[in-house]
């Protein structure tokens, strides 16, 4: 069994006075693609943001590659080799494709896939055709690819991928699935949040199911497929 790259224990998160996450615990091992599942508002994005250090009020332990990061700022966590792709894309619309990549670029990291703009353009030929186009003049799908590429430029060990299939047409969803499988082959570890069971089935090894900020299930995709209760109660199936 591979080493654990990310471990979360007893994670609680708050927005103002509202308590959003309750003692969330999860583990991701090197090379895995793990799904964080649940409905809108279940706490998937909050979990990701908490891991990435983007929330001001959290409690609990988070360790990444053996280092505690629960109190670290996002840029410190990013420098340790964790990448984050937000659900709402958030490309820098005034910056060109190359400039967007420049913002994300970090030095090479041992044991992580090394990315350059050229390599990314091979993975996403669309982007290679428009290196000088401002991010704001791109289609939704292209922006999504740019956001992923921008994060990969930091040569991360682990990428948090927030709802890659949210709100996009099934045809695009299939492209996203292919991309994730390609990244996995390169040796990247991925934690992705997802509502769509079919999508998760296609690309993930294991899943955690959240409901109202609690982890309600953890196991392999096969186990999840076999568990009708969890699927009916906590997923929109």
């Amino acid at each position: 069994m591979q080493e654990t790259i990310l471990e979360v224990n007893g994670l609680n998160a708050f927005y103002g006075r509202a308590h959003i996450l309750f003692d969330v615990g999860l583990k991701v091992r090197k090379g895995e693609v793990v799904a964080l599942m649940g409905r809108n508002g279940a706490g998937k994005s909050t979990t990701m943001k908490a891991i990435m250090g983007m929330l001001s009020r959290t409690q609990g332990e988070i360790s990444f590659m053996g280092n505690p990061i629960a109190k670290s700022a996002p840029h410190v966590i990013s420098k340790m080799g964790m990448g984050f792709v937000p659900e709402d894309r958030r490309v820098f619309t005034d910056l060109t494709v190359l400039e967007n990549l420049e913002v994300g670029s970090q030095s090479e990291r041992e044991g992580a896939p090394h990315w350059t703009a050229e390599k990314l353009f091979e993975l996403f030929p669309n982007l290679g055709e428009m290196p000088h186009r401002p991010g704001g003049n791109m289609s939704g799908g292209e922006q999504q690819m740019l956001t992923v590429s921008r994060t990969l430029m930091g040569n991360p060990y682990l990428v948090l991928l927030d709802e890659p299939s949210e709100g996009v047409a099934p045809v695009i969803v299939e492209q996203m699935a292919n991309m994730i499988m390609a990244l996995k082959k390169q040796g990247l570890t991925i934690l992705l949040s997802e509502q769509n069971l079919q999508f998760a089935d296609l690309v993930c090894d294991r899943a955690y199911v959240l409901e109202n900020g609690h982890v309600r299930f953890e196991g392999t995709m096969e186990e999840l497929a076999a568990n009708d209760d969890v699927r009916r109660n906590y997923l929109s199936v």
């Binding site: 047409a169 099934p170 045809v171 969803v173 299939e174 079919q198 089935d201 296609l202």
Partner: peptide, 10 residues
């Protein structure tokens, strides 16, 4: 074609 996609899983 445009909406539901061709994949059987969808």
């Amino acid at each position: 074609e445009v909406y539901f996609g061709s994949g059987k899983s969808f």
